[in-house]
Design a protein around this nucleic acid. Structure first.
Length: 109
DNA sequence: TCCATGACCGACT
DNA sequence: AAGTCGGCCATGG
């Protein structure tokens, strides 16, 4: 498997519990720039390892639709159990829950 | 090899 | 605010 994917998985595994990251964000962290590759990496992820794929969402803060319906609901449940709160029942407040690898959350601006 | 599709993103209408 | 379009790259037929 491409080391790039490995890198992607490594980054995803670094997402703390109770927080989420977007595809674009991970793409930038991985030094890729093409978010689609992240999606593809996750697609082939299958069940190979214990990567917390559920903490990866799209730029809108929503759960990306996938091949099987009901999966999104499953992902939503996993996130809620970690303390992530949904708005409008589908959307996550990125300002609040997005993973900040370099900057702490308390942005006391 | 060429063409179409995808767990996306951003800009534009 | 919601829908459309182009970009960029990997995978499969």
């Amino acid at each position: 498997m491409d080391p790039i994917y490995k890198h992607i998985y490594t980054i995803i595994e670094q997402i703390p519990k109770g927080r989420v990251a977007t595809y674009g964000q991970i793409a930038r962290l991985a030094g890729i720039g093409q978010p689609r590759r992240i999606g593809y990496a996750l697609r082939i992820l299958h069940e190979e390892n214990s990567t917390p794929w559920h903490r990866v969402i799209n730029a809108k803060g929503e759960i990306s639709k996938r091949w099987e319906m009901g999966c999104e609901d499953h992902q939503k449940s996993l996130l809620e159990e970690e303390g992530v709160i949904f708005e409008s029942n589908i959307r996550i407040s990125l300002a609040q829950f997005q993973w900040q690898p370099r900057t702490p959350i308390n942005s006391t601006k």
